[in-house]
Amino acid sequence: MPDIKVFIVDDSAVVRQVLTALLDGLPGIQVIGSAPDPIFALKRMETAWPDVIVLDIEMPRMDGITFLKKLMRERPTPVVICSTLTAKGAEVTMQAMSAGAVDIITKPTLNLKGFLQDSKTLLADAIKAASHARVKKVSSVSSQQMESTPKLTADAVIMPTGLAPMSETTDRVIAIGTSTGGTQALEYVLTRLPRIVPGIVIVQHMPEAFTAAFAKRLDSLSQISVKEAEQNDRVIPGLALIAPGGKHMLLRRSGAQYRVEIKDGPLVSRHRPSVDVLFRSTAQAAGKNAIGIIMTGMGDDGARGLKELHDTGALTVAQDEASCVVYGMPKEAVKIGATDAEFSLAAIPELIIRSPSRAKLLKA
């Protein structure tokens, strides 16, 4: 396989220097150039176009969002946003993700060099995932893992119980897991839902400090309410809860109510929050009263958890290959028999609105 060609656009000479040195030292990745702003970048990329662009947001002459929109109109290219880890930076970064960026690398305001050196696996994962993304022109509407990182299962956070699934009711809980390309996909789905739909719990692979801004943005665009989940939040109709970055989210049942538990823990399937953890807890708490949906993303997080949910009698579906930015997580779920059907992104809102049982969907 040829190396992934990367171009870095950042007004900080330190960032460009450190990122270039780190990425050039990783197997399968080659930095072919860098520039302090998009104007210089466009000139330098004329001779050799990259596979992935690592892009800052706040830069002179042309900001990152303007440049990103120009790229997506004229020459769609996978873009990884390299953004400062602040509340203000998170809000602006969400605009960039909506405009077509496929992933986020966070950078702190202090000890930048040390942070980047400690984040080689994260950087490699983001860039490798982006290189597989099928980006398109954005209308109005993450990766091969480093072998040095231990890959834990959901057992590290929540043990299987072996209990019989609860009896079926007319209530539904919708559990969604997604990664690369998921910010745009979730925006598409949630903004097409009416005000009253079953309660929704979501894991989107995203760094901490960004999930709150992401939820806030979706809440402003959607008829349903969307928020970053907090400990003991109730799962109720018309509300979507998004797992906070850097924490696992589990579905729990208390009497007739569903609530979420937010907890620390190790990386599961190399992620925190992990889709596997959410799906396993949903299998235990809701069983056949849940619908599990696995959407666009690199890797296999969620496949095993969705299989556990499927085995309780719950309806489980995957986003189809044609509508995925990266057909990785759905592919792995389909491969192990964890899904009942595949749906296009355009069909998923209607599926949530109808919220059929497995028997009803397969009969239809």
Rank of each mutant, 00 (worst) to 15 (best):
V31R: 00
K137T: 15
Y258Q: 02
T121H: 14
G337H: 03
D11H: 00
G328L: 01
Q95I: 12
H248E: 09
M298Y: 00
L26A: 05
A333N: 05
L190I: 09
A185T: 11
E308K: 05
V92E: 10
S142G: 13
K363N: 15
A154K: 01
R234I: 09
P60H: 01
Q319M: 09
V31K: 08
R192Y: 03
R252Y: 10
T211A: 03
A130D: 07
L267I: 02
D56Q: 06
A133Q: 10
I242L: 07
T86V: 04
S222C: 14
R172F: 09
G114N: 11
I353T: 12
L267W: 00
C324V: 07
R195W: 12
E350P: 03
K43W: 13
E208M: 10
R234M: 10
T191W: 04
I32V: 14
A164F: 14
T77G: 04
S254F: 15
L152H: 15
I158A: 08
A213P: 00
G246C: 04
L190G: 06
K107Y: 06
A283S: 10
P266M: 00
G305K: 06
V157Q: 07
G265D: 10
A35R: 11
G265H: 06
D3I: 01
I262C: 02
L42D: 12
I202R: 03
D63H: 00
F115Q: 10
K307L: 15
R354N: 11
L278P: 01
K263T: 14
I196P: 00
P244Y: 08
R253H: 04
S34D: 13
A13G: 11
R304K: 14
